[in-house]
Structure formats: C-alpha cells, structure tokens
Simulated scan of single mutants.
Amino acid sequence: MEYIDYYKILGVDKNASAEDIKKAYRKLARKHHPDLNPNNPEASKLFQQINEANEVLSDPENRKKYDQYGKDWKHADQFEQARQQQRSSGSYGQGNPFGDSGNPFGSDYFTYEEGGDYSDFFSSIFGNRGGGRQTKFKGQDFRATVQLSLTEAAKTHQQTFTVNGKNIRITVPAGIENGQEIKLAGHGAPGMNGGPNGDLYITFEIQNNTAFTRKGNDLYTDVPLDLYKALLGGEELIDTLDGKVKMKVAPETQNGTKVRLKGKGFPVYKKEGTFGDLYVTYQLQIPTGLTAKEKELIEQLARERKTN
C-alpha cells in the first residue's frame, strides 16, 4: 500500500492544530475545485487527495491512528483486536516474538516499510502457527466526501473520485441532499484471514451555485416586479432550474405576494420524474429618476384617488 503524506498534501506541520488543518483544507479545496480548473486534468485527482487528507486529519481518532501506523492506519482496529484476542487466550507474547509493548514495530515500520501484503504480515504474527483456527476480521471502513454544485445535484450523473489511490465511479441520483451519506458495501479495506472487506461511506456536500434557496424538494426565489406591471398586470419571465417559464401577473399584485409553480422545484431523490415546487415571491420595485411629466401624472393619479 503506497504511503500518502496527508500533512504534506495540506501543507501543514505534523503538530498543526485542528483549526490550522481546517483553514488549510478550505483554502486548498477552493483553489483546486475541478469546476474552477476545467482545463487541468489533474485537478480532480488532487481535489480528492485534499478531501481524503482532511477526512483523516480532521478526525482526532483517525489522526491518532495515522500518526501511529502511517500507511497502515486503516488496519489499526484489526491489529488491536488481534492483540486483545491473544491476551485473552493467554498466548500473547508466546506466538508473538515482540511481546506486549504497545506497537512493537514503531511508527517508522508502518509508515515506510515496503513489501508483502498487510494481511500476510499479520498472519505471520497471529496466524495459524499450530494448526488452530484463524479469526476473521472485517476490513476497515473508508469515508470520503464528495462536493457537488446544486445544479449537479439536480441531475442524475456519473461521478468519479479517488479513495486510497483507487478510482471509484458511481451514479449519483438526482435529488441528493446536502450531508446525505450513502454506503458502498465492500469498497473499504480488505478483510483479514478471509474476513469481508470494509465498506465505503460517502458524504455529499452540496454548494449552492444558484439564486434559489432549497428547502427539501422545494425551491424559493425572489423576483423583482416593476410598479406598472404590479398595478396593471402582465407577464413575467421566471428562471427555473431547467430554463425560463412565462407566468401571468395579476393586476394589483401586492409587494411580497408569493406564487407557486407546481413541479418546478428540485427533483425527488430516486423518484424519477417527480419534483418539488418553486415558490416565487414578488419584490415590488419603485421607479426612480422620474421625469417632470411622470411626476405630473402620478400627482394627477393621487388627486384622482383622493376624490374617489
């Protein structure tokens, strides 16, 4: 397994605080986001590495494992499980030539040693030395974060990202929620002694790149409406996620009037062809820079209203 220096990727020292890591991640994520680097084929890979580094170093428990075991930090739980099992069976220190002294190999071994498969290595310590049954362990679960724009989340599409040096391609259904987590069974670390692979958990972060506000499957937007159209009525072109629609404006429409466009909201997750609604709130625009003639007509209208 190739060693990835997460500290180097984020450009921080190994003694960096959690706040330093957060600031470094946000700065790099903005700089290297694929949407901002469409002509750079390496941007997506680098962006995924930045996300992976943040996932590990921003979690105190994962960071502790990474600092102790380096490239093999994902197997820390299996190592501890195996060691505890050896202790409880009374054979710890007999079949293990390194004894009970914490991490017998030191962090340098786990960080830089190249060679055989990790599971083979553990089997040589805790495996079937005397013909006994080997304990199976499930592989470590992986976690990753995928960032999407709101317009991307509104359409079913293919998404490719990198986890632990492996490219994974998934289909993202339209309507995914911000913060929603999905599980890809068996895409985590390999199991030990014939145990099942771990799972991959993906969390989606949705960044709003539109003028809409999303609430569930409904969208909300404010639309400016000029005074004359509000008084006399007419038509207004309204922006939606899939283009503009023409909507009638009733005469004497008041400021703050809210109208609903049914089925013009956000797609419902895993319900193809089903959408929420779009709510439009009219914001009345008072004309400025009136000419003398316009002022005279408005004064005439005001006098007319007083007499009625």
Rank of each mutant, 00 (worst) to 15 (best):
G106Q: 02
V249P: 01
Y109K: 07
N167L: 08
R83A: 05
P287S: 09
K248P: 07
P104E: 08
R214Q: 06
L200D: 01
S107D: 10
P287T: 03
Q86H: 07
L225I: 03
Y25C: 03
N308F: 05
P104D: 06
D20A: 10
I298Q: 15
D239F: 02
K271P: 01
S58R: 11
R133K: 14
R129E: 13
N96K: 08
R260I: 02
A76Y: 11
G263S: 09
K45F: 03
Q140K: 11
N193R: 10
A211N: 14
A292Q: 14
Q48H: 14
S149Q: 05
G216K: 02
H157W: 04
G188C: 04
Y279E: 03
T257W: 11
L284S: 03
L219Y: 01
K166G: 00
T145E: 15
A302W: 08
V163M: 08
G265M: 02
P190M: 09
T288E: 15
P38E: 12
F137E: 14
Y112N: 08
N54H: 15
L237D: 15
T210D: 11
S44V: 04
N255A: 07
I9H: 06
V249R: 11
R169M: 13
R83L: 08
L227N: 04
Q180P: 09
T156H: 07
N54C: 06
R26N: 15
L232A: 11
